[in-house]
């Protein structure tokens, strides 16, 4: 039972890291980045390359973030920026980009599944059971992402500009906020977070060119159901991520994989504002 609880919390942590990048892009640009899954994969391969080069893990993770952020910035500047007026086309174009990135990775690294050694192996003794130490690290990582994110948004000038753009872009522009710069940086950070989460997943699962896709739908639905705030996103991750673990453990893993998408769709149908306060 305790193991299930810990699994639920660590799954929620991973989901939170993945969807937080999607959330911030959604908040500022009102679009869903369908290339998010590809950026998760990019981060995983960055981690693979980094660890093959023998870099320490504390460098591998920032490397993955930087790679993702660079890809994101390029995407925003070359594709997304031209499609602000056509949001559905923007998501279709990011989807196309996702396939392009996936194929490029396949061409460079091959189709085969690869593995990355976890930086921390073994188990820790927690409340009387042995539990994977690396999964505990994930909880810490999620907390760090949440704290850094909140500090960035609430404590910095860039965060203030970003919140202003989210609330009323026209007004923010009138006040001298360079909203295209805010969009560029946001998209870069969001993509960087996707890559970061990709790097964090690698020790838990294998690395292959389509590894990001299974996470994508869950992340989409979590962002939609969260209604746009970081806090409600965390709540959604814990509730629905926990439910996913319970269903996977006690019912059937395949059904577990669908839990988030189905539950979120039903929640949104009954309560269109999702978990956001009215």
């Amino acid at each position: 039972m305790l193991t299930v609880t810990l699994d639920a919390v660590t799954t929620a942590a991973l989901l939170f890291i993945i969807s937080s990048g999607l959330l911030i892009v959604f908040g500022v640009m009102k679009i869903i980045n369908f290339a998010h899954a590809a950026f998760v994969t990019v981060g995983a391969y960055a981690a693979l390359v980094g660890s093959q080069l023998g870099l320490p893990w504390v460098l591998v993770v920032p490397l993955a973030f930087a790679t993702g952020a660079l890809c994101g910035a390029l995407t925003e500047a070359t594709i997304v920026r031209r499609l602000y007026q056509r949001p559905l086309d923007a998501i279709l174009a990011t989807w196309g980009l996702g396939t392009v990135i996936g194929q490029l990775i396949t061409l460079i690294f091959g189709r085969e599944v690869q593995f990355v050694q976890a930086p921390i192996t073994g188990t820790v003794d927690l409340f009387g059971i042995d539990y994977s130490a690396y999964r505990i690290v994930l909880i810490a990582a999620a907390v760090i992402v949440a704290v850094v994110f909140t500090m960035l948004l609430n404590g910095t000038r860039l965060g203030l500009s970003t919140r202003a753009v989210i609330m009323n872009e026209m007004l923010a522009q009138g006040l001298g906020v360079d909203s295209s710069r805010v969009r560029l940086i946001t998209f870069a950070i969001g993509s960087g977070l996707a890559a970061l989460s990709g790097a964090l997943i690698t020790p838990l699962s294998s690395v292959d060119p389509n590894m990001g896709v299974p996470w994508l739908v869950s992340a989409f639905m979590l962002v939609m159901v969260s209604g746009g705030s970081l806090l409600t996103l965390a709540v959604s991750c814990i509730l629905l991520g926990g439910l996913q673990v319970i269903v996977s453990t006690f019912v059937n893993p395949i059904l577990g994989g669908l839990t988030i998408a189905i539950c979120a769709a039903i929640v949104l149908r009954i309560r269109p504002e999702g978990f956001a306060r009215a």
Binding site: R157, L160, S161, R163, A164, M167, L171, A172, L175, V177
Partner: peptide, 12 residues
């Protein structure tokens, strides 16, 4: 910005 504080509005 109705949802920002007076301080943040002035900062902008």
């Amino acid at each position: 910005f109705q949802d920002l504080t007076i301080r943040d509005n002035l900062r902008l």
